[in-house]
Structure formats: C-alpha cells, structure tokens
C-alpha cells in the first residue's frame, strides 16, 4: 500500500513579512514545511514503520523553493518526493485537480493533507481533492488507525468527537493532536538529499486571483488615563464595562 502525503512550503510563523506592490514578500529562507502537514508526514511514516504501508510519497505544489519542504518530508521518513512546479499562487480548488492526478499517478490509496493550509488559511484542499478523486474524506483527524484495508479514525466535531471508518482509498486531513511529529535529525536531513525527488512542470489556472495584499497595521492601542486614583479607577471601570464590555 502506498501513502501519499501533501506538503506545503509556507512562511514560517515567525517570518518577517513585507507587503511589496500588492504581494506579500517573504525571504526565501523564512519558509518552512506547514505544521499541519507535519502531522500528515508523521502519520504516514508511522504507518510505514508499523509495516502497514510499503512506501510514503511526499507531494508538493508550488515554486522551486518548495523542494525544501519536500526535503524535510524526506528527512522525516518519506521515501520519495514529487514537486508539481508552478510559480502561480494556486488557490486550493485549482490545486485539487493536479493533486488528485499526482495521487493516482503514484498509486497511493491513502492521501494525507493538512487540515488547513497556512498560506491560504483555508481548509478546502482536503475535501476538494477527495471530490476530484471520488474518495471519502475524514477531516480534522485526531486519531488514525489502519486495519487491513479499513481506515478507522476519530475527528473533532463541535460538541466532542466522532469515530469513523471507511475502506481504502481515503483522504484524511490532519489536526493538531494526531501525533507528536519527530524532529528531522541531522543524519536524516543529509540522507534526504540523496532520496529521489522528481519535478514536473505544472500548468493550471488559478480560480482565485490575488488583487492586492497588505499587512495588518500595528497601531498602538494603549490608552493612558490621567488624574487622581479615584477618577482613574472609575474611568477604567467605565471603559471596561461600556467599551471593552468585559465587565
């Protein structure tokens, strides 16, 4: 059984962002493997280590620098990687078709996708690719087991969790808590350089086009209250009650 796991190269949570001519500019080195995708890679690698899968293939869509995210996945234990290379900023629906095709092409029967992609802040990709494949999807998964060809999973819902099962092939999207992803060790990072990574040019049409981008302004919102203690205290109480509405 082959597992495909989707990885996205996204700006690191601590990356310094700049808005430049209607696009967000980020230093190339400030990108990292999306944290939500790490859960997927970890889940895939654990299934393989448990002898339940034969191969783990990491798939990415994005510009050439996305190779770094794939190398991380390889360092974490994926066997090989495929990059569908495009400089277009494809929205989740535009990515779903090519990702479905790549999943079929590598013969995978389980596709793991991050519950949400940090760059679009969107949870659409997993369900959209399941739709394109015609496979069932379990989203926001916090527990995943494989017994023969049966996938048993638990996912979060508003008022608790649901247990769920389906036969392969299946798309599973991840959620924090699914596992504790390992670190890529230095020997594995070095070995990952020698694992196979295939690049295929991708031409796809974005459905959503970014017109402008701006950073949220960081206005200082602090207020200094002046006066004697009694005045300041009653003014503070008034603001907390009437304006902030926390009292």
């Amino acid at each position: 059984m082959i597992i495909a796991t989707y990885v996205k190269h996204v700006p690191d949570a601590e990356a310094r962002l700049a808005a430049d001519g209607g696009r967000i500019a980020v230093d190339d080195h400030a990108y990292a493997l999306d944290g939500m995708d790490e859960y997927g890679v970890e889940a895939a690698v654990r299934l393989k280590e448990a002898g339940l899968a034969d191969e783990v293939v990491a798939l990415a869509i994005g510009p050439a620098r996305s190779e770094a995210a794939l190398r991380t996945a390889l360092a974490l234990g994926a066997d090989r990687a495929v990059l569908l290379e495009t400089d277009d900023d494809l929205d989740p629906l535009a990515q779903a078709g090519p990702l479905a095709e790549a999943t079929r092409a590598c013969g995978a029967e389980l596709l793991l996708v991050g519950g949400k992609q940090a760059d679009w802040d969107s949870a659409a990709l997993g369900p959209a690719v399941a739709e394109a494949l015609g496979w069932p999807v379990c989203d926001w998964t916090t527990e995943l087991r494989l017994e023969g060809r049966e996938v048993a999973a638990v996912h979060d819902v508003d008022d608790g969790s649901e247990a769920w099962s389906a036969s392969l092939p299946v798309v599973v999207t991840t959620q924090q808590g699914l596992n504790e992803p390992r670190y890529p060790t230095l020997p594995n990072i070095m070995k990952a350089k020698r694992k196979p990574l295939e690049r295929r040019p991708l031409t796809a049409t974005a459905r959503v086009v970014t017109l402008a981008a701006a950073l949220p302004s960081r206005a200082r919102r602090g207020v200094r209250l002046e006066g004697d203690a009694a005045t300041v205290a009653s003014e503070l109480a008034r603001r907390l009650r009437d304006e902030a509405k926390v009292l």
Binding site: H29, A32, A68, R71, I189, M190
Partner: peptide, 8 residues
C-alpha cells in the same frame, strides 16, 4: 545545505 541543518 548548512542553512537547512542550522534551522533544524
């Protein structure tokens, strides 16, 4: 290559 190790 070294930057990748440094980051890790």
């Amino acid at each position: 290559d070294l930057l990748a190790l440094q980051r890790a």
